[in-house]
Write a protein that binds this DNA or RNA. Structure first.
Lengths: 247, 247
DNA sequence: AATATAGGTGTACGCCGTACACCTGTCAAG
DNA sequence: CTTGACAGGTGTACGGCGTACACCTATATT
């Protein structure tokens, strides 16, 4: 009877249950805590049990990525390509912000997962439906790069670390240590300006969302201009980029 | 005398020698082969000997990154900002192509190394000298993102793998397997067009260098336009991106 | 000649992914 | 009702990892 109770107490393992637990573990404790052993423990099971449902850790990661990418909103029908793409990317961004480990996990694997391929495919579809040539759609996808997936890796990030460890971000502005400010005056200047973000006249400090949209719109506007002027890949001057290297 | 010979035969360890050997190992055998044990073996030394010169593996990585970033050409004096930035970035790209493990290594650490900071600082300096406001320079740096360091991570990459393993890239065009082409028609369409790269009229296929410059120039041209029209951060409509979300 | 110090060595610990043999409960066929 | 296959959880073990810590040994200094 104790045995029956125990048997009933935990739902039997399944690939889906494993993937969800893995995502939760990575979200909560950071990707570096995601080991087969830790994951098994969270599921009340012995490590090798997982291998009855996933081939190996790499396949586990792949499944996790697909789960996450599947959270991105489907395309909005009946909008022009620009707003359609914009909304989709912002949705992707929201999703990947819930799973801070995902950008690195995605970047570090060498082949796209099915869910990513499907996402990319539908975005290309949006461009094509908006009148883009195959070529322009191709180059545009490259140009948007990882921003298409809602992330632009920041070089000095500080957020991508572990999951909730008590307080979320209790750092005071942390003006850079003076010896660093001296060595890198321009970096310091920007950091200084950005830390005056008491909604001063010139800015929202270093507001991630703002920076993201700034770059995305810069690209989208440039793309729109190319498309409106009927861009084709100007076979004549192939050594220079076709994005109207104007000067 | 055998002892003397042995003592003389190998230069004594040094931080620099270790870092260079580590870079060589990562270049040649892939970053996943870079273990303290392998590295020590390459140097004819016992693993723990390394720890007399580097604190731990993380610091080793940091040193490797700084070594690599130090290979980037210094800024060209007496050019306008646009060409100055362009050249510097193309130099960075060349460097990082020699060290395919570096982009991921850079992205996966959470704090910038001194050499990276110094590189970023001098690039901000170029923008400032070109008449950019602190704010605009700030946003522009974010917008360029990792392209500033010469890489834009490709989602389906295939190159970032191991180092030279005999033949470099003997793959025939590898038209995607038909069941994938069926599921992702737009991806297939692009892949199809790109594989007709027998210098057909519309393109150089999927030429990495072309894609990189295309995106870079798209950004640089958009930035130039912002700067010429005296961009300021339009405090009025803060919920929308300042990169003239025009429509 | 005595001693401090820098730098290479050897052993050992705890973590990791996972191969492989094993057990056990369920369910279909005889 | 028995039997046997099979799906799925278990236990043990192996090789690799980063690295703590005690040790040895040349060289340099007093």
């Amino acid at each position: 009877m104790a045995e029956q109770a125990e048997t009933l107490r935990r739902t039997p393992l399944s690939r889906d249950r494993i993937l969800r637990a893995a995502v939760a573990l990575a979200d909560g404790a950071g990707i570096e805590s995601l080991s087969m052993r830790n994951l098994a423990q969270d599921l009340g099971v012995v490590p090798m049990a997982l291998y009855k449902h996933v081939a190996n850790k790499d396949e586990l990661l792949e499944g996790m990525i697909d789960l996450v990418v599947g959270e991105i909103d489907p395309p909005t029908p009946d909008t022009d390509w620009k707003h359609g793409v914009r909304q989709r990317i912002l949705s992707a961004r929201q999703v990947l912000q819930r799973h801070p480990w995902a950008p690195l996990a995605i970047e570090s694997r060498n082949m796209a997962t099915p869910a990513i391929l499907s996402y990319l495919d539908s975005m290309i579809g949006t461009f094509r439906a908006g009148g883009f040539s195959v070529d322009l759609a191709h180059h545009v996808m490259h140009a948007m790069g990882s921003r298409i997936l809602g992330f632009s890796q920041e070089l000095f990030d500080a957020s991508r670390r572990a999951g909730r460890s008590g307080t979320t971000n209790p750092d005071p502005p942390t003006a850079l240590p003076p010896e660093i400010a001296a060595r890198f005056p321009h970096v310091a200047e920007i950091a200084m300006a950005a830390s005056h973000d008491d909604t001063s006249v010139l800015g929202q400090g270093c507001d991630d969302q703002f920076e993201f949209e700034f770059a995305m719109d810069l690209l989208l506007n440039g793309i729109e201009r190319l498309q409106q002027q009927g861009w084709t890949s100007s076979p004549g001057r192939r050594e220079t980029s076709a994005a109207s290297h104007d000067a």
